[in-house]
Design a protein around this nucleic acid. Sequence first.
DNA 1: GCGACAG
DNA 2: ATCTTGTCGC
Length: 231
Amino acid sequence: MSGFAGMQDLETLAREQVRLAALTPDAWRPGAHIVVGAAFVAFARGEQGPGRAGDHAVIGAAATRDTTPLNSVVVDGRAGARYKPGYLAAREGAMLETALRALMDEPVELDVVLVDATGRDHPRRAGLALHIGAVLDLPTIGVTHRPLLATGPEPPDEIGGFSELVLDGEVVGRWLRVRQGVRPLAVHAAWRTDAAVASETVLGLTTVARTPEPLRFARMAAREARAQKAR
DNA sequence: GCGACAG
DNA sequence: ATCTTGTCGC
């Protein structure tokens, strides 16, 4: 049974988010080398806006040892709901869980998982990145183009330059510059991670692109499979 | 009441 | 999320 069973209902999800936000799991500390998992949901091309429940998607999940690719899987999925800010888990939660569990069936033990979503930067302090970590019982880090509710100043324009993303007085993430002259990433504290650990980990996983390698591989796998499917 | 608002 | 051409740079 899915950890996101029933979460397509917004009221049910909101209650679960409040419950998760109050939990205090042990902090995760990355070792010298880490095995990283990541997943990306690619919806069918052509559709724009919030979409609707049942939308078809291809989900790619990839694992890396530090920055080196280990393996990847692809699964098909259906959106649990239309997109609504604060309720991304209703739309993508179950799909991400399915893909990441498929990845975990492989003989690799994940240390941490990256997802395109916020964590504590959320109306109920439990965005999808935090939620998926609780469900999978794995530390998680969120990576997005912009914050959901948190705000912070422009980070210094140098590799590693960062500023704090603050929500209601709480540091929930960081604006992180992974490449000079390129707009920063919003990195989110999520399940068992704080802003500093999340930020430093993401910086260490970024090499040739703005997007950290595990997420880049997951996205590539998803889009490639989507293209195949369209033939 | 109106707009903002992860993907 | 997805839609989009050319263009600057290595």
